[in-house]
Structure formats: C-alpha cells, structure tokens
Amino acid sequence: MESLSGLVHMGGYGGYVWPAYGISIAVLLAVLAASIMAARRSEAELDLLQRSRREKRGGQTEIPE
C-alpha cells in the first residue's frame, strides 16, 4: 500500500473492506461503552446504598462480601 488513495481504494474493494472494519470497530466500542457504563452505574448505586445503611445504623452493619 503506497499511497493514501491506494489505501482508500483497496484495489477496488474499498467498498467492502472499509465497511467491514468500520462496523467492527463501532460494535466493539459500543459493547465496551455499555460495559463501562453498567459497571459504573451498579457500583455507584451500591456505594450509595451501603453508605446510607451505614449512616442509619451507625456504621455497624456491613454487608459481608
């Protein structure tokens, strides 16, 4: 692959190669983003719940892991 236009053109197969890579990157990034958000959301909610329980009970009850 010598030039940028050659890279884009892909010997006439650019219309197949680039969508294949584009869709792959988009799907993998979407799954990654959803996973990061799921972890953040659950852990933040748990943190809030545990803190409110501690405050209510004077820090005595800890949920065993």
């Binding site: 799921a38 659950s42 909610e45 949920i63």
Partner: peptide, 22 residues
C-alpha cells in the same frame, strides 16, 4: 478485549447482586 469486558461486566453483576441482597 473479552477479558476486559468480562471484568467490567462481572463487576457490574456483582454490584447488582449485592444491591439485590441489601
């Protein structure tokens, strides 16, 4: 990538389970 996602989603599931227990 799979290992990383497994860790992230595993963390989310563990937290969700603790939330259910509470």
């Amino acid at each position: 990538y799979w290992v990383s996602i497994l860790i992230l989603r595993g963390r989310a599931e563990i937290a969700a389970q603790k939330i259910r227990v509470i």
